[in-house]
Amino acid sequence: MELESWLVSTVARSLAFSTPLLWAALGEIYAERSGVVNLGVEGMMILGAIAGFMAAQTTGSPLLGIVAAASVGGLAGLLHAFIAITLRADQYVSGLALTILGLGLAGLVGRAYVGVPLSNPMQAVTVPGVTSLPVVGPALFTGQHLLTYAGLIVAVLLSVLLFTTRLGVVIRSAGESPAATDALGINVIKVRYLCVVFGGVMAGIAGAYLSLAYRPSWTEGMTAGMGWIALAIVIFAAWRPVRAIFAAFIFGACFHLAFRLQEVFPPEFLQMLPYLVTILSLTLIALGRGGRQAGAPAALGVPYTRGER
């Protein structure tokens, strides 16, 4: 019985914790599929968190908070897109700068809100009809937020979009071979802008989940490196949205267990766990023979210039 309740709460909290990781990772998957790497996920997330908190606190509407977070995240993504795509600056440097900018800006703007609880946070929901299922019911369908379920559905939709539609082929082509894509009359620049901005929107929503639902308040640096974990998830999931669900859950569980197992293991070790898993998973993937299907998009990180040929 005790084991069951431990299991239930672990799964439930891991799922809750995996939600922001999933949203951010899904956005980054699209950006990277189109050929642009954005190391600014952490920065876009925290900007989303503070923007969402401020909007929700001012208007009293968590929904408006999410809209604000998505918009600000999208704007941050647009900045990266402009620097990386139009100016063709180094994507890694630009992304890092975005993270530093986001953390700093959010800290500055959010000063007045530190320690203030959100007056009208997002409420947890219960999925009707399935809560009575043993273990699964309380673990997966009770006390979660709408954004958690929305994330799962969005992941599936994004997977369908990426692999079975015309737009999906275009996005993947832009990231694999922009020259070939351009030669067929597709605007690679536009596709990449779209995907990078979309990535920002998703990271913004991920931030909003933190400040509106998971811990309805504002703390400086509350994203605590989740943006980086999201980047690792993208690789771990081999740039596939549905696999990102499982990857995000594993990492979410790591974070949660680090907290839960403090009494048994030294907390320092447990805090290392998510990062250790990241390094380990990256190593395993690099060693594995996944074939050419499993690798990163071929043109990832390379600015596109229409050349002579």
Binding site: R166, V169, V170, R172, S173, E176, G185
Partner: peptide, 24 residues
């Protein structure tokens, strides 16, 4: 000018007017 990780059909469908949105 081919996307090497795509199928032949996907390469041909890319940017082709009149392809359906789903399963192009």
């Amino acid at each position: 000018m081919l996307v090497s990780r795509h199928t032949v059909a996907e390469n041909i469908a890319l940017g082709l007017p009149g392809t359906p949105f789903f399963r192009p």
